[in-house]
Design a protein around this nucleic acid. Structure first.
Length: 255
DNA sequence: ATGGTTGGCCTCCAA
């Protein structure tokens, strides 16, 4: 089973780009973040034409998350009490696995009120995750806006204390992992493998990226992860189609 | 070059 997470930065702007990816890579399950669309505007037929069932929670202009699968998705859950009504979390069960797609706040800067909001969101997320059956197969995946370690960011010394690589965020990351989650990607990609590059200042060209998009799995799934990848080619233009500022992250789970 | 860019929106906000 190939599982993919991707922050598409507007599903509307990325529809054709994503369709090409789905046709070629054919993931079994995928999680998208930053739809930037209301529910009514989600291009459902683009997915169903390709054999996917999709569930989503959208929002005008910001946020919005989606789960897609080739097999039916059941027990769909949207949001959690502390998310302020933002469309940042959707959970559903497919292929015998519970998938939780999340889009964590970016936080702006470490001195911004948005950073407080970000830390609070992690706390709420952790409480929500802790209430799940963590002895069962769960995949928590999405844009978590944290680079966990120095191998996950282009300038760990210069970026220390910046949003995405802040000690308080690393505390949150550790607490989340301590619940019994495991990074499914880290063991399979070399240091310096990133999933996000800012559009500005030629960051992609200069290799100034961060690994902030993650696939975390509970113990029953750890032994089923056979490979993982982050495809930086998807951060490049595709003909005249513009890329997201994030690349897709893939994990293969053995049956 | 003292920032840069993209997407969606109601002329600025979030990333």
């Amino acid at each position: 089973m190939l599982v993919v997470t991707w922050n598409v930065n507007s599903l509307k702007a990325r529809e054709a780009f994503l369709a090409e990816f789905l046709d070629r890579v054919r993931p079994d399950v995928f999680a998208l973040q930053e739809l930037k669309l209301e529910d009514a505007a989600v291009p459902v037929s683009m997915f169903t034409q390709r054999g996917y069932e999709v569930v989503f929670t959208g929002q005008k202009a910001y946020n919005g998350v989606l789960l897609g699968s080739r097999t039916p998705i059941t027990d769909v859950h949207r949001g959690f009490p502390g998310d302020g009504g933002d469309a940042r979390l959707i959970a559903g069960t497919t292929n015998g696995v519970r998938f939780v797609c999340v889009y964590c706040p970016q936080g702006q800067s470490a001195t911004s009120p948005k950073f407080v909001f970000k830390l609070d969101f992690y706390e709420q997320l952790r409480a929500w995750v802790a209430a799940q059956d963590l002895a069962s197969p769960i995949v928590l995946l999405g844009d978590m806006n944290i680079a966990p370690g120095p191998e996950d960011i282009w300038d760990p010394f210069g970026m220390d204390g910046e949003t995405g690589y802040h000690p308080l965020e690393h505390d949150e990351w550790r607490k989340l992992m301590a619940l019994g989650l495991h990074d499914a990607v880290r063991p399979h990609v070399p240091a310096g493998t990133y999933s996000y590059w800012d559009y500005r200042a030629g960051s992609f060209h200069k290799g100034q990226g961060m690994r902030i998009d993650h696939v975390l799995v509970t113990a029953p799934l750890v032994g089923r992860v056979t490979s993982a990848w982050i495809d930086r080619n998807e951060r490049k233009k595709k003909g005249d189609l513009a890329p997201s500022d994030h690349a897709p992250v893939g994990v293969v789970l053995r049956d």
